[in-house]
Amino acid sequence: MPNALPFKRLPTNKAEWVTVYIEGQPVKVRQGDSAAAAVLAAGLQPSRTTVVSGSGRAPYCLMGVCFECLLQIDGVENVQGCMTPAREGMQIMSQKQARQLNNSKPSDLKPTDLKNSHIKNEDTAV
């Protein structure tokens, strides 16, 4: 949930405004804002936690250098928020440590645990 003080907006030139969802909450942002800017405008800090220690981080350079702005955008994790323009309906979530590729846990099964029916060299002792 957005928790920190939001960045405020000065009077701007005319532009379209779009609604993005930050941790599920609708936020109006200006066309031309990046996803990282949207997160700051909404006051979501930290916007990611690190893979090593889990410490909190927020966008730092906004020019594609530091990779502190990694976010989960529309379901895809580890997206560089400051290089991603905000779009209508975009779902933005904070990035929690390492990325998850699938939902299943890696299996500890071994071929020896399998029913041997199809195994070609059945005679092999493992």
């Binding site: 907006r9 200006r30 020019m63």
Partner: peptide
């Protein structure tokens, strides 16, 4: 979180008008 580069603040000004 809360520490940013000066350049970042300027980019927010130029592209978004955010302070």
């Amino acid at each position: 979180p809360g520490v940013m580069s000066c350049g970042a603040a300027q980019i927010l000004l130029k592209s978004s008008g955010l302070i």
